[in-house]
Design a protein around this nucleic acid. Structure first.
Lengths: 237, 237
DNA sequence: TAAAATAAAATCGTACACAATCTTTCAAAG
DNA sequence: CTTTGAAAGATTGTGTACGATTTTATTTTA
């Protein structure tokens, strides 16, 4: 009975490295804006950083590509995705459709489990806000939507939302919002209340305007950002 | 200027094989019920069939896994997915949310392009029905939903729908519908009319009941199906 | 000096070899 | 006859070598 027998665990010479961990590291680094859109993810460099062979790193990059957070270009390699304006609008359109539904659904199923999960998260959000940690606030705001989606008891749509949130994070990185998080926290708090009160229709409406607000604050003008060092972006636990 | 320079084209020894073609071949074989759920997709066997190395076949299987039509099991390999009952319900729930929205949206944007595409497809459907080709009818019915989704001008959601349709096909294979296509064609015709008349709300309602109908006709009792021969399932163009 | 051609370096694409793991077979014991 | 165990076979997991392609650097030429 070997419980460590996952698909992405390798044991070579006594040391074990989990591909899932590497995948999550890179995924999080992108979502958390530690890896700028357009950054060239060179295979050799990543292999050296994580201490694995190219075969496995390639599989990881392939997964990230399926998530649409990384672009694979023939004979040139992997790059952190740079969503176009049309893609940005599409992502938010899809989010409105799915997340409004999930908000309504969560409100219908409002249970103690949901109450706990969402209050716990809001505390984290407010804590980061109180500490003035802007970076942490941005991370938490993105995660709020994931927590909510996970509570709606619809794993497939929650999975879609996960991908859409990640792409949204890239969109925000490219078309930086003017005021990143002004009304954001307040709306999250209000939305949480509506859901816990079982007011599905109102929750859906607020989610819609909330998402439209985020999209509306985007600035669709060309900018370019300096790209960060791979090693320092990825290895700071 | 090499226009054939895609990510998945390899030229080895003069002959070129496209990974995308292989991916589509297997994907279609699964959706078209030429590859039964649970079938073990052995790497060596597939490599011999398509004449490529294991590295590339592995990448193809990885993509199919991301689409949820193939399950990758550690140290055991790839298998055609066998959706659980819960997964089946989830898939149809997600389809209702997304496809109802797309139907409504398509109705709002009803244009000549949509008219042509959908009429062309309905002709194919009816043609297959007239010819008594049951297999072809099933394929066309699945494709109707894809054509509709593609017309709604929402590529991301259309992509989600593509995956959900493929999974639905597997679900139908496992929990075989009692009367596979009785009312199906009629509803497609009626739905098309509503969309072309711009009646969005009614189109969404019909789509909802249509999908509930398909789900309702499923038979959730355990069955097992014999698995087909890989080579003959995949190589008949 | 600028443009074009060429050479060199970097990077990706693929196959393959060998290791790790799982499955099957078959014999021996209970 | 069933169960247990071990060995053989089959299959997947991973690193690495080599070829193909792209990019960068260098030289040549006008």
């Amino acid at each position: 009975m070997n419980k460590t027998s996952t698909l992405s665990t390798a044991s070579v010479g006594g040391e074990t490295v989990d591909s899932d961990q590497i995948y999550n590291r890179i995924f999080d680094a992108i979502v958390d804006h530690n890896l700028a859109p357009g950054t060239h993810l060179k295979e050799d460099e990543l292999c050296e950083i994580f201490g694995i062979g190219r075969t496995r790193m390639r599989a990881v990059l392939s997964r990230l590509s399926a998530d649409h957070v990384v672009d694979l270009v023939a004979n040139r390699g992997a790059f952190v995705a740079q969503p176009s304006v049309e893609e940005a609008r599409e992502v938010f359109r899809a989010r409105r459709v799915i997340e409004c539904h999930l908000a309504e659904r969560a409100a219908r199923n409002a249970s103690d489990t949901i109450r706990e999960a969402m209050h716990a998260h809001l505390q984290h959000e407010n804590h980061a806000r109180a500490a003035g940690d802007v970076v942490q606030v941005i991370k938490r705001c993105g995660k709020y939507h994931q927590v909510l989606a996970d509570q709606a008891d619809s794993p497939i749509m929650a999975h879609f939302v996960r991908e859409l949130i990640a792409r949204s994070s890239l969109i925000i990185a490219v078309y930086e919002a003017k005021n990143p998080d002004e009304a954001e926290l307040e709306e999250h708090t209000r939305l949480t209340e509506l859901i816990l009160e079982g007011k599905g229709a109102e929750a859906a409406t607020l989610m819609d305007s909330h998402l439209r607000g985020i999209e509306g604050r985007l600035d669709f003008s060309s900018k370019d950002k300096g790209k960060l060092d791979l090693r320092s972006s990825l290895l700071n636990k």
